[in-house]
Design a protein around this nucleic acid. Structure first.
Lengths: 154, 154
DNA sequence: ATCGAACATCTCGATGAACGAGATAATAAG
DNA sequence: CTTATTATCTCGTTCATCGAGATGTTCGAT
C-alpha cells in the first residue's frame, strides 16, 4: 500500500500504515507459533477456524474446513493428516451422515494456543480498558469499516 | 485467539476479535491481488517491501529483500526470478559494490498496486477523517500497542 | 601488488504443501 | 434398485523454499 504519487501525504496515512504494520506483525506472530510447533501457516489458520467454530458450538467437517481455508479436497486431506499426526485434532466419523469426517480439536492444542496467544490477548484487553466509550467506538468503527472495505472490494 | 476458558468473556474481546478479523481480511485482500496476477503471497510482500523502501528513498538489494522476508539466498533468487520474469522488477548490478544486485520496481507494478490497493487506502482515510483527535489518538495507541506486543513476545 | 578471508548472489538437488483428476463410499432421488 | 450427488481420500505433479556449495567481488593485511 504505497502513498499515492503526486499526492501530499495526508496525516491519516500514518494510521493506515500503522494498521498494515500491525496486521503484518500479527501474521508474523502466528508464523512464529507455527514454526515453533513444526506447523505451517495453513495449519494455524485451520486450528483457529476449528476453535472459533467450537466456541460457536458448531461442528466442523473436513469439507467445511477446506472451504473456509480455500483448499481443495486433496489439500484438506493432507492438512487434516498433518494435524492428526501431530496430535492436534482427531477424525470422527459423522453420526448423522457417515460420509462426513468431523474434525475435533484435542485439548492439548487448545492449551498450546492459549499459552501462546493468551498474553497478546490480555495485553490488548488491557490497552482497551484505557479508553472511554467514544474512543472504543472509534476503534470499532475504523476496524469494522476497513474490514468491510477489504472484504467488499476486489 | 480463542476466548480464555473459564473466564467470563470481557466486552473488550469483541474488539480483539474484530482486529484479528480485520488482519485476516487484509491478508485475504492481498491474496486476491496475488492470485489475480498469478503471484504468490511472498511475491506481494516483496513488492510492498520494495515500494516501502523506495518511498523511504532506500535501495533494496537482493540479500536485503530476502532478509526482510525471511528467505534464504536460494529462495530469494527464485523470488526475484519470478518477479523479473513477470515484469514487476528488474535486476541492476550495484554501482558501489558490484557483488550486489539492486532490485528496482517497474512503474507497471507500482500502477498495478495503486489500482488495487488505492481504493482501500482512500476508504480508510475517509473513515479516519470522521474522528476527532482524541479518537485518532486511541486508534493509534491501540494499534501501536498491539503491534508492539505482537513483535515483542514469542 | 597479491593473497586470503568475508561477502553477495546464484546453481543444484531435495523436501513438502497444495493442486487436478479420479477412485471409493455413503446418501438421496426417481 | 438404479442413478445422481455428496464427502472424503489416493495418486501423481507442480512449485516455493531449503541446505549445501559454487562463482564472482571486495577489502584488509602483509
Amino acid at each position: 500500500m504505497p502513498t499515492p504519487p503526486g499526492t501530499d501525504p495526508a496525516p491519516e496515512m500514518e494510521i493506515v500504515h500503522l494498521l498494515r504494520a500491525t496486521a503484518v506483525e500479527l501474521g508474523l506472530h502466528s508464523a512464529r507459533f507455527a514454526h515453533r510447533n513444526g506447523m505451517h501457516a495453513t495449519d494455524v489458520r485451520a486450528l483457529i477456524a476449528l476453535m472459533d467454530a467450537r466456541r460457536a458450538g458448531e461442528e466442523t467437517t473436513a469439507g467445511r474446513l477446506g472451504a473456509v481455508l480455500g483448499l481443495n479436497s486433496a489439500g484438506t486431506t493432507a492438512l487434516v493428516d498433518r494435524l492428526e499426526r501431530a496430535g492436534h485434532v482427531r477424525r470422527v466419523r459423522g453420526e448423522r451422515d457417515r460420509r462426513q469426517v468431523v474434525i475435533e480439536v484435542e485439548d492439548r492444542a487448545v492449551d498450546l494456543g492459549q499459552a501462546f496467544f493468551g498474553p497478546l490477548i490480555e495485553r490488548s484487553v488491557e490497552l482497551l480498558r484505557g479508553y472511554d466509550e467514544r474512543q472504543l467506538a472509534a476503534i470499532r468503527g475504523f476496524l469494522g469499516g476497513v474490514r468491510e472495505a477489504a472484504a467488499g472490494q476486489g
